[in-house]
Design a protein around this nucleic acid. Structure first.
Length: 958
RNA sequence: GCGGGUGUGGCGAAAUUGGCAGACGCACCAGACUUAGGAUCUGGCGCUUAACGGCAUGGGGGUUCGAGUCCCUCCACCCGCACCA
């Protein structure tokens, strides 16, 4: 019987679904949680790159089930997001509708691949039963603060208790009033400065034309990515999450998780911890005399090299520092800076700009006067928005000082001699000079000493700074989780948990309102009336960002239908964390940071025991596309009768390019093939340019273009002709897999042609999971051939032998060992090779022994589950294969009696000699020295040394 | 500029972690069976040389009996971050 994968795959997919084979039922035994980053269901469906990670996790999930683990292997959809909303704005169709449609398509495609997902646990972030809990977590964040003493989040009540006990507190509006005496607004304002989810004025990218705030990645060169509308920086109220409170724990946690170096390093950079010191400089003159400017520095050891101070244009004192003479210039400078987008400012970092304020500050140690400047290179958002300029030891300060002719004082003598004569060097290796009490100290010691002195003097203190910013949490969008907050007399209050979910209202159009309010403001009655209250209060109109749902979805899979909690204590206690998480590295500093943040937060509130979401993370490499290209020939400068599109293949193109008389040759070829003469237009030389055209890779087989398919591909190619006969070989290029390059390969097509088992194995066979690699459908025939060959092994008259053949057992046990250890190491590509080797050997041995074929079938089942299930039942087993115990290997079958030693002379392999593995090192050496072949290479010299590595190699040194 | 990663045949890649470089597969070549082959099977296949041999893991240097693997240095490509004081 031939290998009919279509029938087999259809049959078992239906059976598994019908029997609920992969349903997780109870919390018993050793658990294994293997998770994929769930997809955003886009309108274009899956291409072959998407399932790569899902195949890997499915192999692990199935393998772990064979090993007796209780496996949680779920799938769901990150179904809130911009594209559906954008589409809704254009077409008027509700995002829910398009999202549902896209999900249905995704599901269809996923189902064909034979994944062992427990679909009864599917989650969708846009489902009210899911986002109810996203809102619930938001409320918890709102009612929590971060206690720096205990280094963890606590309910806001503990802060209130403290504030009440403490008595007087300073607030922005009411200076030094006891907390208890503050009015409701005052309390709210004060607590807002502590809440982990808080409303605050923040700088945003405001796009008036689109009527919305844009994320940084949606703004390119000062205009919106979509539509090219101008974007201004605007300060407006904005919900944020205080992720910065967790900066240190997010940093420390990285040491204990098995994630790739690149991701952990990216997160470290993103968090950007800097240890240093604050330092106050007193203003000596000008209108702001007596004020203090606080700077942050990581190099307090260079304080004696500070020759100026720079403050950001947005700095609170920038205006008041300016002396009357400088006022106008400083104001103009600050205004110009404010009008430029963040992007623009970053674009020309090389231009040194700045304005002298006219004021000076006193150096805290020398008491000398140093000038204060306003400079764009100082960022308002980092540190204190002011820096001390040490031009001798900071390249930016140096560029600034040189441009404006400011003084440069060297205070470090570098350990590296070559730096000695450089006007500016930034090094941690050297000793302090010209620095009074720091003179002679190594930089590392001087930093400590400087901070001690600064603190002693009371002009500053030790400080840690982070690059990490609090996360903007509100979006002026429709298709996201509504924020469960209403404004009672203008004071933000959360809805009671019992009233969740706060459902997305239906609205007529998904655009912002005429007054620039977010789409939710269009809802007829977007208000809330708390119980016992007589008034309706307005609800928050922004929605949560895309990453809200994904920051905790892994927990919901543990108990997806729970209506009392986001997951039960039992489920959370049993499944704990993700054992293996696979997804793309593009989420390095977004999702993967936020999910760690929420995990730590929920831990602090006592909902989770774990402090990290995933023990092991693998980032699968991107599968690139392999585009096919042919070349269109055009005749702009010739008079010709050619009235059809003319194309040439890769080889003709190369010939043309390497030939000096290219155009003339081509004209001749066209003449001989089509009988068309070509004359250059008068006064012009004959030029025949060729244009590369990307052809759909589905019209190409082994790089050969299917000419008729090509002609019917697009109307303008209907009459296409080809130079050089009917065999046109396309050129190729590795590019991103996208519609634009016509190189998208759809898994459905592969399943039609070769089957899901073949696609699964081929994707793994392509190379290491973590590595990016191009997709080339050509190679798949190798895996297809392997599957057919495997099928054939089971086709004959198989039976169980009393005495299994030794060579077959050896082939089998080699495979068991290889596949077992390689799955554990997530080296799936080498597993596939091992299968091929084993099946090749068994076929050569004409093995038909069930003692061998049965275990082989189990080994194969994680990789090619449909075929394995079919063969398994074919061998007469009643139950399915998925729960059968994984075979172990026995070293006794792998042991060799002898080994053919490669013998090298001075490190070069010269000949081979078969020897018993029983021999001692000396005996091996003896045998080699006695070998006839050796004489040819020693040329009379006595070997000086013989190195024997038992079972590996012999090296003779002459 | 900083950080991470990758460089091995025509292509995708292996290499038991310092021990026969190129397993396995694609493509290609030759043959068998075939009316046919985008089916199947057999054999070949790094470069170079008539051959003995020589040369080969991005380039150069080093350690070692022995280096794709370890060290130094340079180069190329990919991915992050980027005036972060």
């Amino acid at each position: 019987m031939a290998y009919d994968f279509r029938e087999i795959e259809r049959k078992w997919q239906a059976a598994w679904a019908g029997e609920g084979t992969f349903k997780v039922r109870e919390h018993k035994g050793d658990k294994f949680y293997v998770l994929d980053m769930f997809p955003y269901p886009s309108g274009s469906g899956l291409h072959v790159g998407h399932p790569l990670g899902y195949i890997a996790t499915d192999i692990v999930a199935r393998y772990k089930r064979h090993r007796g683990f209780n496996v949680l292997h779920p799938m769901g959809y990150d179904s809130f997001g911009l594209p559906a909303e954008q589409y809704a704005i254009q077409t008027g169709r509700h995002p829910r509708e398009t999202t549902d449609k896209n999900i249905a398509r995704y599901r269809q495609q996923l189902d064909r691949l034979g994944f062992s997902f427990d679909w009864s646990r599917e989650v969708r972030t846009s489902d009210p039963s899911f986002y109810k809990w996203t809102q619930w977590i938001f409320i918890k964040l709102f009612h929590s603060w971060f206690n720096n003493e205990t280094n963890r989040a606590e309910p806001i009540d503990t802060l209130v208790a403290r504030l009440e006990q403490q008595g007087a507190v300073t607030t922005a509006t009411d200076a030094r009033k006891p907390f208890g005496e503050l009015d409701e607004q005052g309390k709210s304002d004060l607590l807002m400065q502590y809440r982990l989810a808080y409303l605050d004025e923040a700088w945003v990218n405001w796009c008036p034309a689109l009527g919305t705030v844009l994320a940084n990645e949606e703004v390119k060169d000062g205009v919106s990515e979509r539509g090219g509308h101008p974007v201004a920086r605007k300060r407006m109220p904005q919900w944020s999450l205080r992720i910065t409170a967790y900066a240190d724990r997010l940093l420390d946690g990285l040491d204990d998780i098995d994630w790739s170096d690149s991701i952990r390093e990216a997160q470290r950079n993103w968090i950007g911890r800097s240890d240093g010191s604050t330092l106050f400089f007193e203003v000596a003159d000008g209108p702001a005399a007596g004020e203090k400017i606080e700077v942050f520095t990581t190099r307090p050891d260079t304080v004696f090299g500070a020759t100026f101070l720079s403050v950001a244009p947005e700095h609170g004192l920038a205006g008041s520092l300016a002396t009357p003479e400088q006022q106008q210039a400083v104001n103009a400078y600050a205004r110009a800076a404010a009008n430029r987008s963040e992007r623009d400012r970053q674009a020309d970092v090389k231009n040194v700009t700045g304005k002298f304020t006219g004021s000076h500050v006193l150096h805290p140690f020398t008491k000398e006067k140093i000038p204060v400047w306003v400079a764009e290179y100082v960022l308002a958002g980092y540190g204190t928005g002011a820096v001390m300029g040490v031009p001798a030891h900071d390249t930016r300060d140096y560029a600034f000082a040189r441009h404006f002719g400011l003084e440069v004082i060297k205070v470090i003598e570098p350990a590296d001699e070559s730096l000695k004569d450089e006007p500016c060097f930034d090094t941690y290796e050297g000793r302090c000079i010209n620095s009074r009490f720091l003179d002679g100290l190594e930089v590392s010691d001087a930093i400590g000493k400087a901070i001690t002195e600064i603190e002693k003097q009371g002009t500053g203190k030790r400080k840690v700074n982070y690059r990490l910013r609090d996360a903007a949490f509100g979006r002026q969008r429709y298709w996201g989780e509504p924020i469960p907050v209403y404004f009672r007399n203008g004071i933000p209050c959360t809805m009671p948990e019992d009233d969740l979910p706060l459902r997305l209202p239906d609205i007529d159009t998904f655009l912002p309102t005429e007054t620039g309010d977010p789409p939710l403001a269009r809802a007829g009655d977007w208000t809330y009336r708390p119980e016992g209250d007589s008034e309706q209060w307005p609800l928050e109109t922004t929605t949560m960002p895309g990453w809200a749902g994904s920051s905790w979805y892994y927990l919901r899979y543990m108990d997806p239908h729970n209506e009392e909690a986001f997951a039960s204590k039992e489920a959370l206690g049993y499944w704990r964390d993700v054992d293996l998480y696979i997804g793309g590295s593009e989420h390095a500093t977004g999702h993967l940071l936020y999910v760690r943040f929420w995990t730590k937060f929920l831990h602090d509130l006592g909902y989770l025991e774990i402090t990290e979401p995933a023990r092991k993370l693998i980032n699968q490499g991107m599968i690139q596309g392999r585009s096919n290209i042919i070349y269109r020939v055009e005749f702009p400068d010739a008079s010709t009768d050619i009235d059809f599109p003319l194309f040439i293949g890769e080889e003709s193109k190369k010939e043309l390019q390497s030939s000096a008389t290219g155009a003339g040759d081509l004209a001749k070829m066209i003449d001989s093939e089509f009988g068309v003469k070509m004359q250059p237009i008068e006064g012009k030389s004959l030029k025949i340019p060729i244009t590369p055209i990307h052809v759909d890779v589905n019209l190409v087989n082994e790089d050969m273009l299917e000419l008729n398919d090509f002609r019917s591909w697009k109307p303008e190619f209907r009459d296409a002709r080809f130079l050089g006969g009917d065999k046109i070989k396309c050129g190729w290029e590795i590019e991103k897999m996208s519609k634009r390059w016509h190189n998208v390969v759809n898994p459905d097509d592969i399943c039609d042609k070769y089957g899901a088992d073949c696609l699964r194995m081929y994707e793994m066979f392509l190379g290491p999971l973590e590595q990016g690699k191009p997709w080339n459908t050509n190679g798949i025939t190798g895996v297809y051939g392997f599957l057919k060959k495997t099928w054939k092994l089971f086709e004959g008259n198989v039976s169980r032998r009393d005495h299994p053949a030794e060579d077959a057992m050896k082939s089998l046990h080699k495979l068991i060992k290889k596949v077992t250890t390689d799955i554990e190491q997530h080296s799936f590509n080498t597993c596939v090779s091992a299968f091929m080797i084993c099946v090749n050997e068994l076929a050569a041995q004409k093995c038909d022994d069930l003692n061998v074929l049965e275990p082989l079938c189990i080994l194969l089942s994680p990789f090619a589950p449909h075929m394995a299930e079919e063969l398994w039942r074919g061998m007469g087993h009643e139950g399915g294969i998925s729960a059968v115990a994984w075979p172990g290997w026995d070293e006794k079958y792998l042991a060799e009696a002898s080994f053919t030693y490669p013998v090298s002379i001075n490190g070069k392999t010269r000949f081979k000699i078969p020897l018993s593995l029983e021999l001692t090192k000396d005996q091996v050496a003896e045998a080699v020295l006695a070998a006839e072949e050796l004489k040819r290479y020693t040329t009379g010299n006595t070997p000086r040394k013989v190195i024997v590595v038992p079972g590996r190699i012999v090296n003779v040194v002459v």
